[in-house]
Amino acid sequence: MYMVLVLFGVSLLIFFLARVMPGDPARLALGPEATQEQVASLRHKLGLDRPLYTQYYVFLRGLFKGELGMSLITKRDVFKDLIQRLPATLELVMTAMLIAILGGIPLGVLSALHKDRTIDQISRIFAFAGVSFPRFWIGIMFQIAFAYILGLLPITGRISGDPPTRITGLYLLDSLIARDFPAFVDSFKHLLLPSLTLSLSPLAQITRITRANMIEQLRKDYSIVMRTIGMPEVVNIYKYMLKNAFTSTLTVIGLLTGWMIGNAFVIEQVFSWPGMARYGVNSVLRNDFNAVVGVTLVIAVGYVVINLIVDLLYGYLDPRIRLKR
């Protein structure tokens, strides 16, 4: 319920941001050469000449019908544009998150077990670097190294030939369903650099938080008992300690997803990735108002939902929280 309120607030915020800020969307869209009449007619067409609360009401009514208003560039409803581009962004963000989790957790465990030794120091340096790299720059450096110099991976885009038949819109999945293995390999190659670039900072942060939590678990009585009774170290670490350590890692993962969606805006631009974020940037650059509002809103909804899922998982992993409710 609270979530619905937050989302309602978000819609208000974005809407009024778009309407109240100085600057006239119609004037911006038409450019400085347009005559006063042209601007007035576009204002009328977009409903900008009506009172604010009426505009908001119309906007909100549209939301329930799955309409976000017409894009000034594509001349289609923004919602349709977004649906078409969403899978590309999802594929990118999910792959990056997967890399960050699959890399970060074992690395964190390893650092914790070898606290203050060489592995730990290397992972610390890596973590500092990982959060300090400008994402767009490291993406460009990857392009220079792996694409231009070594020629191993493609520079930009999602796939070389035609995309596989659209079922989910996720090329990896679609090409698998179509049993088109060359397409699978090709889209995987395209996906590798952008998702790796996007995953670096979250990977570093997950490593650090997992390390901190694991060190805490290693000091707890139960893990000392486990060790003394001769429980195999692997079971001890991965079944018991990691599960406890993972709960606080999980909250960070929720936050990091939001971070990733934000930074996808930059990464998609660098790698000409045809996703929602790139669409968003172009809408901003070309003053496509409804599109900006739509992209921001869809992302906010996604982010709120992800945090809800994290909360639920949190309860699942930590019975103390689950039972308190």
Binding site: L17, F265, V281, S283, T296, Y303
Partner: peptide, 24 residues
Amino acid sequence: MRITDIFLAIPPLVLALAVTAVLE
């Protein structure tokens, strides 16, 4: 705190982009 929650429901870079959209 409710207003704060609303602002935090949008990833920072995305909100910043939306703000730049309406400004010079």
